[in-house]
Amino acid sequence: MTSIIEVDEVSKTFGGVIANNGISLQVEHGCITGLIGPNGSGKTTLFNSIVGYHPIDSGSIKFENEEISKKSVQEIARLGLIRTFQQTRIYSAMNCVQNMLISLPHRKMKLSESFHRHTGSDFDKADALLDFVGLYEKRFLTAGSLSFGQQKLLEFAMALMNEPTALLLDEPTAGINPTLINGLIERLKRANSEFGITLFVIEHNMRVIMNLADKIYCLAHGELLAQGSPDEIRNDPRVIDAYLGAN
């Protein structure tokens, strides 16, 4: 297997706070990779570094063997590396279908193609994906009137609409009704297997990440603490210490 995202010795500080310190990890092509760690361990900082929200201090980040650590958010997104936000970002004044149509992969369009109307297959795709995340019945509601969990699902559907090569998900199950979480795990797995999208997931819910991921990285205090299969991580005493506090 080849890695699609290669993070090599990445460091990032905010003033005196070392958010990421020499982190190296690889996201394998076509797999689901998890990223866990206690609050403040630098997970979202690493995500933001990968998608270009802020420059990194040192190290290198490669996407499909192309150096992206100097690129802007838009340039990285146009390569097919899309992220969702911990706090959802949707177009709250528009309804779900409009949200989906906006998320068509504009990066694959020439300017002249953008002057076409939305085709029947655009609508079909939007409907199918809304159905996929279970929002079909609510598709004419304005997105702002949805609950936080539904907005997360909508944002996930929008990301799928964009046909990304790799998708970074920042806490996809936070705020989602516990009874729906099993369904969401199922959908994330299907997105990976059916649509062939590589997933890189930050998650706090251990049950979710253990069920979902093929490989897990654990951060603590801005450093890579452990890596391995879910079973290895589950039984790693350092991880347990990081979460429960070592003496």
Binding site: V51, V73, Q74, A77, R78, G80, I82, R83, F85, R89, I90, Y91, I102, S103, P105, H106, R107, L111, M158, N162
Partner: peptide
């Protein structure tokens, strides 16, 4: 968000 979705 539009930028993050790759819109030019």
């Amino acid at each position: 968000k539009a930028e993050a979705m790759g819109i030019h």
